[in-house]
Amino acid sequence: MSQTLITQEFGIIIAAKNHKPTILNPDFLKYTGIVPTEWELARQPIYTQSVSQVAFTNGIAIIAEPTRVMFIEAIENKAVKEISIPEIAKKYVEALPNVEYEAVGINPRGYVAFEKEQDAARLFLTETLLSGGAWQEVGTAPVRATLNLAYTLERGPLYLSINEASLRNPDETSTPIVLFSGSFSYEIISETVLERKNSVHQAVDNWQADLAIYQEIINTKFIGKNSEQNSVVPNVFAMSAAV
Rank of each mutant, 00 (worst) to 15 (best):
Tyr186Cys: 04
Thr57Phe: 07
Trp135Cys: 00
Tyr151Gln: 03
Pro66Ile: 10
Leu5Ser: 01
Pro66Ser: 07
Gly59Lys: 11
Gln202Asp: 11
Thr37Trp: 02
Asn206Cys: 07
Gly33Arg: 06
Gln44Gly: 00
Tyr101His: 12
Ala120Phe: 09
Asn58His: 10
Ile88Ala: 01
Pro45Ser: 04
Pro26Asn: 07
Thr67Cys: 00
Ala134Asp: 10
Lys197Asn: 01
Gly224Ala: 04
Asn18Ala: 14
Phe222Trp: 08
Arg196Trp: 12
Ser50Arg: 11
Gly59Arg: 10
Gly110Arg: 04
Ser231Glu: 02
Met70Asn: 06
Ala212Asn: 03
Ile83Pro: 02
Tyr101Leu: 11
Lys197Gly: 00
Ser231Met: 13
Met70Gln: 12
Glu195Val: 07
Leu147Gln: 04
Ser183Ala: 15
Arg68Val: 09
Phe222Arg: 02
Trp135Leu: 10
Ser240His: 10
Val143Gly: 00
Val200His: 05
Ile63Glu: 13
Phe28Pro: 05
Ala238Trp: 08
Lys90Asn: 13
Thr175Glu: 02
Arg122Val: 09
Thr67Gly: 11
Ser181Thr: 12
Thr146Tyr: 01
Gly139Ile: 12
Val178Asp: 01
Asn18Met: 08
Thr140Tyr: 11
Pro234Arg: 10
Gln44Ser: 08
Asn77Ser: 08
Glu100Leu: 15
Ser2Ala: 11
Pro97His: 07
Val93Gln: 04
Gly132Leu: 09
Gln229His: 07
Ala113Thr: 08
Phe180Asn: 03
Ala89Gln: 04
Ala113Gly: 01
Lys81Cys: 00
Phe56Ser: 03
Ser131Asp: 03
Thr4Cys: 02
Leu29Asn: 06
Thr22Gly: 04
Leu130Gln: 11
Gly59Met: 11
Gln229Pro: 00
Ser199Cys: 02
Asn219Glu: 15
Gln8Val: 13
Ile88Tyr: 05
Ile218Glu: 01
Glu87Ile: 09
Ile213Val: 15
Tyr111Ala: 05
Ser161Asn: 13
